[in-house]
Design a protein around this nucleic acid. Sequence first.
DNA 1: AGCCAGGATCATC
DNA 2: GATGATCATGGC
Length: 302
Amino acid sequence: MNSPLILDYPVPPLFSFKECLWFLNRNYDDCMHRISSGAITKAISLPEGDFLIRIAEHRQMIRMEILDGADIENHREVLEQYLKNWFDLDRDPRPLYELLKKDPQLSYMVTAFQGLRLVSMPDLFEALCWGITGQQINLSFAYKLKRRLVEKYGRSIEHEGNVYHLFPKPTALAKAGITDLMDMQFSQKKAEYLIGLSKAFLDGTISEKTLKALPSLKERQQVLTAIRGIGLWTANYALMKSFRENSCIPYGDVGLLNALIAHGIMQQKTDREQMDHFFEKYKGWESYLVFYLWRSLSQPEQ
DNA sequence: AGCCAGGATCATC
DNA sequence: GATGATCATGGC
C-alpha cells in the first residue's frame, strides 16, 4: 500500500504520553491494542470506515500514522478527533492538580502521575460490554473473556503479520446464543446481559446519539441502568470512559475502595456517605480522580 | 484451600 | 430501601 498518512499533533501542556502508554500497557493482555517500542497500534472503527492507527511521540509531537484504511486523506479530521478523544488531549488538568495539592494524602500524584490523562474508550457499546464483562471478577480473567469475545465476534485488520481486533458490533453480538458465550466461560447472566444490550442497541432502545443528547448526567445514568445488567457502577464506568463525563463515581468499585483505604481516606468499604463527602472537594473532577486512584493501585508505595 | 475479584439481580423482610 | 443469596471461575 501507499506510504501511511502522518498527522502530527503538538504535545499539550501537562500531557505525558509515557504515562498514558503505561496505563494501556499495565500487566494485562488487552486484545484491543498492541504496544511495542514506545508506540501503540490499534484498529478503530468509525462511521467512515475501519482504520489502523499507530501513535508515538516524535520530536515534541504526538505522531499518528494511519497504517490502513480506505480514502484516508479525506478523513484527516475525524482521525485527529479520535486521537484527541482517546487521550483526552484537550483537557487542561491544572484545576485538578490545584485540588490535589491541597490534599495531604494525594498531593504526591501531581508529580508522580503528572500528565496522565483519562485514557478513554470512545465506543459506548464497547465500554458497556467491557463493564459488564468485568463485573465482580478479577481483571486478568476479564481480559481473557474479552479476548475470546472479540476474537469470535469482531472483525480484524492484519498488518505486518499481526492481527488487530475491532470490538464486535451489536449486530454481530446480538446473533450469539447464550450458550455460545457460556462456552467462553461467561456466566449465564453476563451472556444474557451482553446479548440483551446488543439487541437494545439494534432496536434503538439505546444509542450513543440519543444518550448524548440528554441534558444531564443523571438522566444518562437512568437510561443506562434501566437496561438489564447495567447498574450504577457499569453506567458510571461507561460514561466516564466513553463520554469522558467529569463527575462519575463508580460506587462499589473494588479498586476505588481499595485505593481510598490504602491512602487512609476511608476506613470501611460500605460508607457511601464518607465517599461522597470526600469527593465533594473534587467537584467536576470526580472521574479524573477515580482514574488517578486506579493508577495508584498499580504502583507500590506511590 | 479458601477468599476475593474494577457488580447486578432477585427474593425477602 | 435495606439485607442476603446467587452467580461462575480465575488468581493469588
